[in-house]
Design a protein around this nucleic acid. Structure first.
Length: 697
RNA sequence: GGGAGCAUAGCUCAGCUGGUUCAGAGCACCUGCCUUACAAGCAGGGGGUCACAGGUUCGAACCCUGUUGCUCCCA
């Protein structure tokens, strides 16, 4: 790096350049220049590749401040690589966001007076695709406004035919490898979305609730009773037993006896198990196998009846027996039954109680544990088969920034649970399992292949019709393939591995940097690493940069409902994309939350204006190579140029070092000071001639 | 309940293995300037017991222990 000989000049002020930088026109002008000249386009060649795949935004969304931050960082990284002469590729795309989009489409239809249940699957999907066509492109257009240097010719969508085929192929592959299975289990049920959810999609929230102490009278006794404590009194209708700790002296004499469930008078037995915490509540636990995970396990152990009193929408069904409650919503019943119990003298007391309830990440509905048949990925087996999933992160082959995220990652991997991948939705890739009337099934790509396989597997059956599974896969079951599927890696598979025949996958994989939010480490980052090792035998990326959450000045998370999030496009219109980008980066070390303050955007805008005016000054200087100059001036110009060269080299070294640590806000500050202080305040001031006085006078 | 982390100027943060860049940066603030690149600017200026209490050391913002307050993740 360095400047050549100091320029020899005198001033001829230009009036063509505006005094104040007007980013809108300039940014539009250059963005379209970049696009028409295909400057962001990348195809494999002999240069070193540098690849980033975008975390595909949902087709439901519009650009928010989190996207601004995230995509600004990606753009900085990819542009730097491009300037360094690497073959830089930033792949863009969008995510079909199964449950989120389906919820939006259902709502849109409801507003039109159409119920999802009145539509066939195909009719519904037609509406969903219309939705996608209408809204899917918006966010990509917004990214252009931000200045994102993506290779737009490579834009992908997670539910386009090729991508969906990859999902189906990998499903079948995992099934054949014994890593996917189908099982009746307790799942997180979203009664509003009417679908199962993975553990990661459940958000626990603190709530203030009531702890009801309810008396269960012993069979054949009018006054002897046990008391249980519960926050969900409606579930007593599904009780199958009472359980106490075998060491609890208070209840030893009752074990084996029976009590009656209030109102419905079902006799249930008092059993004893170490699982019960003697300290909590009354020491007596009601066991409700259909509506609680732990109770279900307990029920299995003691062979208790599973009495499921809720339907898929969270309404009580006829198994609840008492006609006062059947057909009503679980929360309505909770209020009513509390009153009824009190009136009937079954309530000992009611305490205020702070507890946590699980809610659906997408619909917000309170989750019900529900026993259903679902498809699962055997994660323990998966990780055991691919130990690099943990090792690569721990030994920094995949580097996390900031590094302390490794601990969280390790904790998750060490305690990994099986992944429920089936969803009772229509918008998504349909599970390639085919069933006969008895529930026997085969896994195959097409009906035709399914029949053939079925004949092999069940030679004695004479079914010619098989019905495909109604469910789709979790949206993350397509996202985890993203760094491979955007390069069509799954088109050619060989013995359970991507055969790496196509030029793109060979050249661009593994990618370099992944920039994403820490909250999707488990949803996405961890699973991409798993998919990478399983099918490519190699990591999907070298660095993971975790951004912070964008908060307002009062540290509140920016959200639609709070109304504290500015519209990024308004901000861009007001201060220019560069101003906004700089404002975000200034206060955003990796992993730290960013406290967004518009005054930082102003600082960014001011900086752009500073550069503009420096350009205006330099542009106004006219170089006169033939003019005769005073030796003194030549000497002083040389000194100032040398001085600035030194500064430039220092800054370059400093910036390079900070880049390797991904300290982007510090990189930006170094550049800010270099340009503002060293270049403008010193170098330009030292070398510019006095106004109106030709320099060689 | 388990785990991770934070506390340095009004705000956001830097400060690596304890010692001449150790008390820093940017913004904000105060004072003076509309000086022909930029008032979105220029020149100057004030401001901190490095959360608190102990300890280790010749020496602590940095290491150790405890206290307080806060944040995040997981169940």
């Amino acid at each position: 790096m360095g400047l050549q000989q100091p320029p020899l000049f005198c001033i001829t002020m230009s009036t063509e350049i505006t005094k104040i930088y007007a980013p809108q026109q300039i940014e539009d002008k250059w963005y379209s220049y970049w696009l028409t000249n295909k400057l962001f386009k990348s195809t494999p060649d002999e240069r070193e590749p540098f690849t980033i795949v975008i975390p595909p935004p949902n087709v439901t969304g519009v650009l928010h401040m989190g996207h601004m931050l995230n995509n600004t960082i990606q753009d900085v990284l990819v542009r730097k690589a491009r300037m360094q002469g690497k073959n830089a590729l930033w792949v863009a795309g969008t995510d079909h966001a199964s449950i989120a989009t389906e919820a939006k489409v259902v709502q849109m239809l409801r507003e039109k007076g159409i119920k999802k249940s009145d539509l066939s699957r195909d009719e519904f999907l037609k509406y969903a695709w219309e939705w996608k066509e209408k809204y899917g492109g918006i966010i990509l257009k917004q990214l252009e406004k931000l200045g994102a240097s993506c290779d737009w010719d490579r834009t992908r969508f997670t539910m386009e035919p090729k991508m969906s085929e990859a999902v189906i192929n990998t499903f079948i592959d995992l099934y054949n490898k014994g890593l996917i299975y189908r099982e009746l289990r307790m799942v997180n049920w979203d009664p509003q979305g009417k679908t199962a959810l993975s553990d990661e999609e459940v958000i626990f929230k603190d709530v203030q609730s009531k702890l009801y102490f309810i008396k269960y009278f012993l069979v054949d006794s009018k006054d002897e009773y046990v008391t249980i404590a519960t926050t969900r009194p409606e579930t007593i209708l599904a009780d199958a037993a009472i359980c106490v700790n075998p060491n609890d002296e208070r209840f030893k004499h009752l074990v084996g006896k029976q009590v009656l469930v209030p109102f419905i008078n079902r006799p249930i037995t008092i059993i004893a198990d170490e699982y019960v915490d003697m300290e909590f509540g009354t020491g007596c636990l009601k066991v409700t196998p259909a509506h609680d995970k732990n109770d279900y396990e307990l029920g299995k152990k003691y062979n208790l009846e599973v009495i499921d009193i809720l339907n898929e929408e969270g309404f009580l069904n006829e198994k609840a027996i008492d006609p006062r409650y059947i057909g009503k919503d679980r929360f309505a019943v909770r209020r009513e039954i509390a009153v009824h119990l009190e009136e009937a003298g079954h309530i000992l007391k009611i305490d205020e109680y702070k507890n946590q309830v699980g809610t659906s990440e997408r619909t917000g509905a309170v989750i019900e544990p529900r026993l259903t048949l679902q498809w699962w990925v055997d994660m323990k087996k998966f990780v055991a088969k691919n130990p690099q999933v943990l090792d690569a992160v721990m030994n920094d082959e995949i580097k996390f920034h900031p590094a302390n995220m490794k601990n969280t990652y390790k904790h998750w991997i060490d305690n990994i649970k099986d992944w429920c991948i089936s969803r009772q939705l229509w918008w998504g890739q349909r599970i390639p399992a085919w069933y006969d009337e008895d529930g026997n099934f085969v896994v195959a790509k097409t009906h035709h292949e399914a029949i053939a396989q079925y004949k092999l597997q069940f030679p004695n059956a004479n079914t010619l019709q098989l019905k495909q599974d109604d469910d789709v896969v979790d949206t993350w079951f397509s996202s985890w393939l993203w760094p491979i599927s955007v390069f069509d890696g799954f088109e050619k598979m060989d013995n359970g591995k991507v055969s790496k025949e196509n030029a793109d996958i060979k050249y661009y994989y593994p990618t370099n940097d992944l920039v994403t939010a820490p909250e999707i480490m488990f949803f996405w980052v961890a699973r991409m690493i798993m998919a990478g090792y399983e099918w490519m035998g190699e990591k999907p990326f070298k660095n993971v940069y975790y951004t912070g959450i964008v908060r307002d000045k009062q540290r509140r998370k920016m959200s639609k409902s709070l109304g504290n999030s500015p519209d990024p496009l308004d901000l861009i219109a007001q201060h220019g994309a560069d101003g906004v980008r700089m404002g975000m980066l200034l206060s955003s070390p990796a992993g730290n939350d960013i406290l967004f303050d518009e005054s930082q955007v102003e600082q960014g805008r001011n900086f752009a204006n500073k550069i503009w005016n420096a350009f205006r000054l330099v542009k106004g200087l006219e170089v006169k190579p033939d003019a005769e100059f005073d030796a003194e001036i030549l000497e002083s110009n040389k000194i100032s140029a040398d001085w600035f060269n030194g500064k430039l080299n220092d800054a370059y070294a400093e910036i390079s070092e900070k880049y390797t640590d991904y300290k982007l806000s510090e990189v930006l500050m170094s550049m800010y000071k270099l340009i503002w202080d060293d270049y403008c305040a010193w170098y330009l001031e030292m070398s510019k001639p006095e106004y109106g006085k030709p320099i060689n006078e």
